[in-house]
């Protein structure tokens, strides 16, 4: 299993390295993350580890969310125990707010708490988050089109795309033509970001450059597999 963790984007700032160069960094508060479940080839068809981040108040958690992290007492569980069904291992922690799976061979057990310490020797990471939503956006913002001229006869079309296709042949607009539409609020991965420093005491990870999403947004971080 590659070093992986869940966290929350705190914000961006600038830090000085030992040699005095100033580096732009994103501060991510990451872990400790409980291992909630282990996916195995025999049972689930794939190998993965399921992590949870940040406790959710019990009053906000559904019963199924509580059952995910701890063994609950119910008529059904009693019936199942009587029938000889073994209960899956539980992490025995509070319900978690942000739960994600990381695929790959597993070397953890349910209930383990993963911290930023895993990243001590890691040089680069991939960070996945949900990008800031920009709503229904035009082509200039969404696809970096150039738009049209400010003058020289252009009327009311300064931010338009221009032509979308050819003429009588093919008489249609090709599929996949870049047009206005929903932009942002989608899953985005920024790859190969350098780990500048880690702070095990405060569970902080400082990553060089920008990370998808707003400040306070959840992100998942894993060692990059990019060569």
């Amino acid at each position: 299993m590659l070093p992986s963790i869940l966290g929350r984007k705190v914000g961006m700032t600038q830090v000085f390295l030992e040699d005095g160069t100033a580096v732009p960094v994103t501060v991510v508060q990451a872990g400790p993350c409980h291992v909630l479940q282990i996916r195995s080839k025999e049972r689930d068809g794939y190998e993965a580890v399921q992590l949870g981040f940040e406790d959710k108040p019990r009053r906000l958690a559904a019963r199924s969310e509580r059952g995910q992290v701890a063994a609950l007492d119910s008529k059904r569980s009693k019936n199942r125990a009587a029938a000889g069904v073994e209960v899956a291992a539980k992490a025995d922690c509070e319900p978690q707010r942000f739960v994600r799976e990381f695929r790959g061979p597993v070397n953890a057990t349910v209930g383990d708490a993963l911290t930023v310490e895993q990243f001590t020797d890691v040089k680069n990471v991939d960070v996945t988050g949900t990008s800031k939503g920009r709503g229904f956006s035009g082509v200039m913002k969404r696809h970096n089109f150039a738009g049209q001229r400010a003058s020289h006869g252009v009327k009311k079309c300064h931010r338009h795309a221009g032509g979308t296709g050819m003429s009588a042949s093919p008489s249609r607009v090709f599929k996949g033509k870049k047009m206005p539409g929903q932009y942002g609020n989608s899953r985005v991965t920024t790859r190969n970001l350098q780990v500048v420093s880690i702070d095990t005491e405060n569970n902080l990870l400082l990553v060089r450059g920008a990370v998808p999403g707003p400040n306070g947004g959840f992100v998942s971080i894993r060692q990059t597999n990019k060569v």
């Binding site: 705190v10 914000g11 700032t13 000085f16 501060v27 508060q29 902080l204 400082l206």
Partner: peptide, 14 residues
């Protein structure tokens, strides 16, 4: 933006 964690990181760099 004012935030306890950001303040701490910034302070360490001053």
């Amino acid at each position: 933006m004012s935030n306890a964690i950001m303040d701490m990181v910034n302070k360490a760099n001053q």
